[in-house]
Design a binder for these strands. Structure first.
Length: 592
RNA sequence: GCACCCGUAGCUCAGCUGGAUAGAGCGCUGCCCUCCGAAGGCAGAGGCCAGGGGUUCGAAUCCCUUCGGGUGCGCCA
């Protein structure tokens, strides 16, 4: 069954067509723009709709008149449980619902368990989410952390909303940096052979993580390359080095709990001829030409000189300038390869299902790249496939409020692994979603491990632990069977009438709606914020029970009400667990 | 010079794709443990949503513009 707000929206649509058939309203009123949502201020009721304002013009009626007409008809539908309605402000139609509606929704949630909030809004829509895509030149560092979590959680969120999701990692194994990797590995290989190589030359990767690779190469190939020219060993060592780096990266991802369905290789794609194929598609649309670009104003590069280039007409699709596809040596630019890659993901590869929506998670330093890529996808798919690029801002590492010093030159940059080992994947994942992706966020080692409400991870986990604790205590007086979700769902939920209880039930009931909205907006952080709200509501109810004994969960002289209260506690526990599941965070049973 | 992101309480940030009297945490002030976990909760003070124009029934949200911060700007990926 659809969630409560959707049921109201459907009923509202039906009422509109009914009234149109009766001639009370013109035909063809579009309910799509009408919102049905909880009002910000609870004093306005339980459910609010702007139907009066949005449709007043096409209906040829005043907002309040239209709202009254629609509201009176909806009130006659018993399934909606409307006990009162009012027309407020400029024409809001506000409904007050019978408590049984919220109690019923709680029962629905209990029966669904972790599946509560699952939705079909994404049914039949294929989404490709590309995230991490760190260069395969070494282990991951903290900078990769945020994008990895945001992408992973967004993918889970979309899956919960019913989208058909592919999680993808793009291996940048075709550029100059993997040649540098190969040379760096060769240096370690010679060291492993016992040759005195001196310090790692500037320009190569100095990290110790290449030492074991050098030893493996020495062991596997012996000294066959000791005196050999680079051309002889480059390809083999590069291949082996990339494979070794991917092993490191996959270990790091696993430690963070991030997974991908697909690792696709840039090199393999290029070698398959995909670049030529995608550019042919652009060529066929007349979108490629040879021309000369203007130098950027105010910041002319030193070596700038006018030069004819092969260009893509990105300006026809909203970009600021047309973009080059070929380097001066004749090879493809990164952009050309990326065009091919996106074409591949969307419609150009018969071996893929083809995505309707492409999502990329990038660092904010790639902001300048967004317009041209969106333009390319629009051009290649004739606007049928959308590309949404989420840019993640920096994470500031702190310890007790003091910035953690990092210097890549000194080699003491912080790895992803160090952070995960220090505070745990659960805390890292949660904190990464406590900000919208496009604002920078502070990550304080001390704070994320603190056991206080300063720490949002703790605050939510504590609520879950408290709920678990109540259920544990209840076992003393009740059987496990009495505490089963089905039994709880069938309990006397109509006895849950305190305003704090009803408020918490309303919050829980908005979970399915929140999942859909967050998924459609591609905003996973909303899950974390919502869980904070649920936790706050539960903590408040808990403390109210300290002040008023009649509101305590376990009441020895009223087993009937006790079971109903436990149903609410279980509902809280279940929704928190359901939300944490999307975040990939393990709910804790007790704090230690 | 141009593009993109950000600017909301003293601080850190939400604000449900345009809704009603703009919210939360920290900090500040004052309360709540004989009681299911006080590792919590309640109440109060605190705002020209950076400034200015516009769009409409209605703007923190959309458009233009100014200011401030960040990121980027042909052969790096």
């Amino acid at each position: 069954m659809p969630h409560i707000f959707k049921r109201f929206h459907m009923a509202l649509s039906d009422v509109l067509s009914e009234l149109a058939e009766e001639g009370a309203l013109p035909a063809g009123l579009d309910p799509a723009k009408v919102t049905v949502e909880p009002p910000r201020d609870a004093s306005h009721g339980d459910i609010s709709t702007n139907v009066g304002m949005v449709l007043s013009k096409p209906a040829g009626m005043k907002p309040r008149g239209l709202a009254t007409l629609v509201g009176d008809r909806m009130r006659t539908l018993p399934a909606l449980g409307i006990v009162n309605l009012s027309i407020d402000g400029p024409g809001f139609l506000n409904f007050r619902l019978a408590p049984s509606m919220w109690q019923g929704e709680l029962a629905t949630g209990l029966r669904a368990g972790l599946a509560y909030g699952d939705s079909h809004v994404g049914q039949g829509v294929r989404v490709n989410v590309e995230y991490v895509s760190a260069n395969p030149t070494g282990p991951m560092h903290v900078g990769h952390c945020r994008g990895a979590v945001v992408g992973d959680v967004l993918a889970s969120l979309l899956a919960k909303a019913g989208f058909d999701v592919v999680r993808e990692y793009y291996i940048n194994d075709a550029g100059a940096q993997v040649d540098v990797l190969a040379r760096s590995a060769y240096h370690r290989y010679r060291e492993a052979l016992g040759d005195d190589m001196g310090a790692v030359p500037v320009g190569l990767y100095p990290g110790d993580y290449l030492v074991p690779l050098g030893q493996n190469l020495a062991q596997q190939y012996g000294d066959i390359w000791r005196e050999a020219d680079e051309a002889v060993w480059l390809e083999t060592i590069r291949r082996d080095a990339i494979a070794a780096m991917l092993v490191l990266i996959k270990e790091d991802l696993a430690a963070l709990g991030v997974r991908h369905d697909l690792f696709s290789s840039e090199r393999a794609m290029v070698e398959s001829g995909a670049v030529e194929a995608s550019l042919a598609a652009l060529e066929a649309r007349g979108l490629i030409y040879v021309g000369v670009l203007e130098p950027p104003k105010g910041k002319t590069p030193d070596e700038w000189e006018p030069r004819p280039q092969t260009l893509f007409r990105a300006t026809e699709f909203g970009d600021d300038v047309d973009r080059p596809l070929k380097k001066s040596d004749g090879s493809w630019t990164y952009f050309a390869n990326d065009i091919a890659y996106h074409y591949d993901k969307a419609i150009g590869n018969p071996d893929r299902a083809g995505a309707n929506i492409l999502i990329n998670i990038f660092g904010a330093d790639h902001g300048g790249y967004v317009k041209r890529m969106v333009a390319a996808v629009k051009a290649l798919t004739d606007g049928k496939v959308s590309l949404d690029i989420k840019l993640c801002q920096l994470v500031n590492l702190l310890d007790k409020g003091v910035p953690v010093k990092m210097s890549k030159r000194a080699g003491n940059f912080v790895t992803l692994r160090e952070v995960v080992d220090e505070v745990g994947a659960n805390a890292v994942r949660f904190i990464m979603l406590t900000r919208k992706n496009d604002v920078s966020l502070d990550f304080d080692f001390a704070k994320v491990q603190e056991q206080s409400k300063d720490n949002p991870v703790f605050y939510v986990q504590y609520a879950h632990a408290r709920a678990t604790s109540v259920m544990r205590n209840a076992v003393d007086s009740l059987s496990h069977d009495q505490l089963s979700p089905e039994h709880l769902a069938n309990s006397s939920l109509n006895r849950l009438t305190d305003e704090t209880e009803l408020g918490l039930m309303r919050t829980l009931a908005s979970w399915p709606r929140l999942v859909e909205a967050a998924a459609e907006a591609h905003e996973p952080h909303r899950i974390a914020f919502y869980l904070g709200e649920v936790a706050a509501g539960f903590h408040a109810l808990w403390n109210k029970g300290r002040d008023e004994a009649s509101l305590r969960f376990i009441l020895p002289d009223d087993p009937d009400l006790t079971v109903a209260r436990l149903a609410l506690v279980q509902g809280v526990k279940s929704v928190i667990a359901s939300g944490l599941a999307i975040l990939g965070v393990k709910p804790v049973e007790e704090m230690r």
